[in-house]
Nucleic acid binder design. Structure first.
Lengths: 170, 170
DNA sequence: TACATTTGAATCGCACACGATTTAATCGAT
DNA sequence: ATCGATTAAATCGTGTGCGATTCAAATGTA
């Protein structure tokens, strides 16, 4: 990508805006399904990390979702109000708040399991092939690594948690 | 293929979350450059549409950015306070509010022109090739079409404004 | 052991997003 | 021409995001 071709608006408008728009539209696709569970998309992501990894600190959740306490603390309080999670100071390190699932939170996982399938169904329109999505996902993943490293001001790939929900299988 | 491995979890967690995360990280990349101009990323997108198309209604801006008046009205009022735009009811249709650039808003374009190049520079790290980005952009574009059609509940591609900023060149 | 530094959450203020509703203007079928 | 339906903005309430700051706990170093 030479400077010459960039003049006005390549990555800028060709990628950044569509990414921003697609992200919002996808959240809207989830909304009706998540409404049935009574949670929002960001809250769903927190639940996903808890279902996958179990009890963990606010900081750890933040590293996995690329969010910080200023966003997570209020969000977690809302999940707590809904009796889906519990928050408790760690006995070992009083600075740390450990987040864990309640029974109600664990039970929600069963209902939530249907969601991915229902989302994929709604994309089953042959416009985009599975292979295309696969390639797309790989680049998206790389992009996330680059962006995350820019943000942290280093060149290590180590910073990306490969086990973050949705970043790697399993 | 067991339920566990079904591509279901695929689009869901493999694409949706990274898309959400990448979108936010990209906004953060823009922040320092936009700070120099005193505007936010969504405000920058509105300015882009005005620079590209000139005077247009709130509804039209919304169609181009996939936003509605509940988001745009307050945002436009902030741009108006900054003396970058003007808002005026249309004489022809009193329901419509026409948004246009002030001189200050027009002048900002010159400064803003540098931004795309500076953004692209920060991606010039060889991790992602130009071809990869090109393919990525194509799929992203298709995705946007599919998502937008889902949202509007029809199968026409016509709904997507191919001239939306960043969706197609020129 | 003191004590400055670092760290993890929380808090604060502002700006989106967006579902739902309201208001005013226009359209359209009779 | 009338009046119900539609349309464009605005308004309202809730929930993120995030930069900046605060606070308390833990850490490192003299």
């Amino acid at each position: 990508m030479t400077k010459q071709n960039v003049p006005e608006l390549y990555l800028d408008n060709q990628v950044c805006f569509p990414l921003y728009a697609a992200s919002r539209l996808i959240t809207k696709i989830y909304a009706p399904y998540l409404n049935e569970l009574g949670i929002t998309y960001p809250q769903y992501l927190v639940m996903l990390t808890l279902w996958q990894y179990g009890e963990q600190s606010v900081k750890t959740i933040g590293e996995r979702l690329y969010l910080e306490s200023n966003t997570l603390t209020p969000l977690l309080k809302r999940l707590e109000q809904k009796k889906l999670i519990m928050r408790a100071r760690s006995k070992i390190d009083e600075r740390t708040v450990l987040v864990s699932l309640t029974n109600k939170g664990r039970e929600m996982k069963e209902k939530a399991k249907e969601i991915p399938g229902r989302i994929v169904e709604s994309f089953d329109d042959k416009t985009i092939t599975e292979e295309e999505i696969s390639i797309f996902q790989k680049t998206l993943f790389k992009l996330l690594v680059v962006l995350n490293n820019k943000r942290n001001g280093n060149n290590l790939l180590d910073n990306l948690d490969l086990n973050a929900p949705g970043l790697a299988p399993r």
